[in-house]
Design a protein around this nucleic acid. Structure first.
Length: 138
DNA sequence: GCCAACGTTGGC
DNA sequence: GCCAACGTTGGC
């Protein structure tokens, strides 16, 4: 099983909206970056990801699960990009902010720190464990 | 509101 | 195929 991080502006697609979709989940459409698309291509059902709000909040607010693997994104006219479907698993008891992540030496290698612009990022098992501990999630 | 980082576009 | 110009993203 692999771990990921999904980044979104709360004004565009928020954690609250994601949660209202429940077990049905929601297609993660709109990605127009090959690196991000490549990451989604590598996802398998059952993979877990952090749900990160960029912009004002800049923090991890929830955990999602991949329930549908890579398929063409109907909102992409060029047909080049695809999407995966994710469902909300749960809130994290204590959201982890970007500032906290930056203050944690063991997380200095996270893509969130290295390349904040990448919208879908891989997370290592070690990073996942540390962030979950900080978030009060197991 | 500014600016750095990055990706994309288009002229050559 | 290179590279300058431009647009977008996102942190500060």
């Amino acid at each position: 099983m692999a771990f990921w991080l999904f980044k979104t502006e709360a004004s565009a697609w928020s954690w609250d909206q994601q949660k209202t979709k429940g077990a049905k989940g929601e297609p993660w459409s709109g990605v127009r970056n090959h690196q991000a698309a490549g990451n989604m291509k590598a996802m398998a059902k059952g993979d877990l990801g952090f749900f990160y709000h960029s912009g004002d909040e800049k923090r991890i607010v929830g955990i999602v699960e991949v329930i549908g693997t890579y398929q063409p994104d109907p909102t992409d006219e060029t047909g080049k990009f695809g999407l995966v479907t994710v469902k909300a698993v749960r809130d994290v008891p204590k959201p982890v902010s970007l500032a906290e992540i930056k203050q944690t030496p063991a997380l200095a290698g996270m893509m969130l720190v290295k390349n904040s612009r990448l919208s879908v990022q891989p997370v290592t098992a070690a990073e996942w464990k540390i962030v979950c501990a900080m978030a009060g999630a197991k």
